[in-house]
Design a binder for these strands. Structure first.
Lengths: 218, 218, 218, 218
DNA sequence: GATGAATGAGGTTTCATTCAT
DNA sequence: AATGAATGAAACCTCATTCAT
């Protein structure tokens, strides 16, 4: 009881502060004082700041991975060896991404964290994510490959990263952009809205015509 | 001479380190020791770390703004009031973005910096960029608006940011991605290749069908 | 059973770590984690780190004291009031020192601990040893006094400490020295060898001519 | 001026506290607060606590090494290739050891430090001393070899370490021993007295008869 | 009898900045 | 114009110990 409480309070506070300011700009003091927890508690429960950062991610990515694997299992069962259409795959991923943080009302935080994982140095984090969650991404990539046989492998690789960039960039910089959008267009945008907007863009991007071949001289 | 030298050495070193590790993770000591410059020199020449960060950006964004304004001037003169096609506008922007750092062989650094400007907290930086360089972007946005009359304003706003995200994300993480691509597909990708590949994707993205309207209940 | 086990495991681990690194450099965490024992167990069973240190010494010094008293009893019985020769006294001490740790194969540890007791601050330890084991040493010293009537008391005091220093220093640093000796002279030295080598040196040292008197001006 | 002052104050304070309590038991806060110097000054001037410890030793050992080399140069010149007698060599070393700290009235501190260097873990310190000052010791050892041709090499090696142990042990534990001696024998002992007392003991120890050969079975 | 959780004190180090020269 | 010295704040982490269970 007491433990769960402390550990959870630390994680809850940490993820919010990390999302707001980044890792380096958030000190353990910031976290523990806001969480009303002893300063040493972080090191006691997590061992180090690095491990805390990883734990914050794990709390999202563990259930995400599990559910996404399950969702892909279902799809594969449903399609019985036939190729799953790209739209369905993307749909399934989007749904899972939305599901996990929905239970804690922290979708925005999760998105910011994903953005930080990419943009902040934190080599240890990149390694941790790669090690622990690389396999789902690999599985997903392979299914995408079979859904888009017309694309050369390299082309597909790059397009997936274009799309990934779009999503992570937009969602992680969401707050600032949302402010501007609200000010300029009077719209109040939710993450759900954004995902709805992204769908056709992403699909079009993946299906765009192949580029003209490179010129002979670079 | 000696001063110019010092200032330039600081800027050259700072931009590389910032791009590699981020702002908070790069200390003035890191910079000055690598630049072989006195520790106090940063504060002496720039006043503070914040100002140094801004100066690093200004060195790219000042010439960029100037040239991009000039390029748009040319286009407007050429089209004499008629709408400039989206492809042409994007083309022009891409060319200018490539031109500026090309002279110092630092495209990657420039892109990483742009990425950091987006993703790192540094409120002061966002404000600085907005204040000093907001006008070019506004001008460009307005021209895009006239090139895509079929898009609702808000939709265009978001799509531009999707695209921006793609570009910055891909180019700023270029090194890592390039390694993977080379390993997996035996391709040696140049920045020019990437831009060539991006063109159809970006155009398709901008021209994607409108999303289905939001459901009534969020 | 469980308790005995825990206490013993703590003592076994603590003495090794203390001997290797010293008292201050060995944390209770080091000990308990290596001993696979709960962190609080040390405080629970021993009360404090200081008491643990004392307990580690007691485990060697209690049997040592007992046996040494017994050995001196025997000698006094054998010599029936006549002075016991210095060589015999030293011999007896050496034998007892070797006997106690021999049962646990920990002579080196014992010697290192004695060295630490001398050189590390730990006032409490010096006091503890003095209080609990001072009497054997006093008894031994008195016998030595009668064996070397030609030496002034102060001279004898210092010489005993010179010798003690030799022994503890050599035996506590044994591993490093043995490595050098083996490398340089191709000798594999056992503790018994060393004791054999020390005997004539110690005897000569104790019987050395008196120093010339101090000069008038320090 | 200001710098010299701060650096010197730190070194002066550090060596006293180290000598009194040992390295681990002396915190940088202890040092800087007693030296009335900013806490960060140690890291500014020395880089780390380890480097400070090394600097404290260097301040004694650098002049010691220099003078001892000079003294041996003189002796070699005087003896013109003939072997220098053991007594003379030891005499020369003792004189040099006394000379260096005499100028700062800190012989006792120097001795404690030497003792600590041996008994405290501090692997870095042992390595530092070995690297920087090993050569003088090697030179001295070689001269001792020629002064005691009757000793087998291994025997000489061990005897030198017996003697070293005597000296370091006694001198570094001096304070406690001195208290006892004063209480028991009413003597006030100076380091000079001790050295005077040690001389005949050391000489006798080195010239002790060879031990009886080892028994056939170890 | 034993333990996981928690704590307050204090450790070393790094930081951006300022100051006297 | 430029710099070496110095500083106060704050960073992360480890410590021995205590407490509730």
């Amino acid at each position: 009881m007491a433990q769960t409480d402390t550990v959870t309070r630390i994680l809850d506070t940490a993820e919010v502060l990390f999302a707001e300011r980044g890792f380096a700009e958030t000190s353990l003091r910031n976290i523990t004082s806001k969480a009303k927890v002893n300063l040493a508690a972080v090191n006691y429960h997590f061992g180090s700041k690095k491990s805390l950062i990883q734990a914050v991610f794990a709390r999202y990515l563990d259930p995400f991975t599990e559910r996404f694997h399950a969702a892909l299992d279902e799809l594969e069962a449903e399609y019985q060896g036939r190729d799953i259409p790209l739209e369905t795959l993307l749909e399934s991923m989007a749904r899972t991404v939305l599901e996990v943080p929905a239970e804690r009302n922290s979708l925005k935080v999760f998105m910011r964290l994903l953005g930080l994982a990419y943009s902040q140095a934190q080599g240890h984090l990149r390694r941790y994510i790669q090690e622990h969650y690389g396999s789902v991404f690999t599985r997903f990539t392979e299914l995408v490959r079979r859904a888009t046989p017309e694309l050369p492998d390299a082309e597909r690789f790059w397009r997936l990263h274009f799309v990934l960039g779009s999503v992570i960039f937009t969602l992680s910089g969401l707050d600032a952009l949302r402010d501007i959008a609200e000010q300029d267009y009077g719209e109040q945008v939710t993450v759900r809205d954004l995902i709805r907007r992204m769908r056709p863009v992403v699909v079009s991007a993946m299906h765009a015509p192949l580029p003209e071949p490179a010129e002979s001289v670079a």
